[in-house]
Design a protein around this nucleic acid. Structure first.
Lengths: 111, 111
DNA sequence: CGGTATCCTCTCGGATACTG
DNA sequence: CAGTATCCGAGAGGATACCG
């Protein structure tokens, strides 16, 4: 989509990956699910800065791309659990690399 | 910044990394520089879809975070060369992983 | 509890024109 | 050549209220 020619495939694949797991919240939501399934509210607790609206939207997009599973339990009050699919598990090494890189090269302490 | 407690460092580091190399264009610009220094126009040729405005902005941000170097030659017409710093080189393995992941899991061919 | 719906603001990002 | 400047629309994303 972005470019043709010799190095095009490389760039296109990176672009495709960024489309699916890039953006402000997707990687963080995936991080929060790395240790197992979580309920909507539990994800929100791990990511207090995300709004309900954006969390819903992010989860829907990840679900659409089959990176996470959404399981609804027909109970009252309702219970919904999110978990990584195999595809989702496969991004964890990339998130680990990002974490290591961030720790080593970024200053993100209070300014 | 995002969260406190046990897993907070992990998420914060990922967040910091995404802030520096995330977004629509940064990873693609870094990809284009992976084989060595390029001029402004050469990067634009490799990424025909990026506008001059966004390329300039992206390059400035990467420069600010010391991920790329900007070298200006005092010539007419002007010549400016961009290259990866050591920090920038250190993200290439992550981009490789992203590329592999995208190739394996994403469909980005013409829909 | 796990969402929608609505409103609002702000940034992203494209298009175009201009410049040293 | 390598940008700036300006304008504009679309979407990101927050705040709040409401719902089954």
């Amino acid at each position: 989509m972005a470019v043709n020619g010799d190095k095009g495939d490389y760039i296109c694949s990176v672009e495709a990956a960024v489309n699916e797991i890039g953006g402000k919240w997707k990687s963080l939501v995936l991080c929060s699910l790395k240790d197992g399934k979580l309920r909507f509210g539990e994800i929100n607790n791990k990511l207090p800065e995300i709004s309900q609206r954006m969390l819903t939207k992010t989860l829907r997009e990840l679900e659409k791309d089959r990176i996470i599973n959404r399981k609804v339990y027909p109970e009252v009050p309702p219970r919904v659990e999110y978990s990584l699919t195999a595809k989702g598990e496969s991004v964890l090494p990339i998130l680990d690399s990002l974490c290591d890189w961030g720790k080593k090269y970024c200053e993100y302490n209070e300014n």
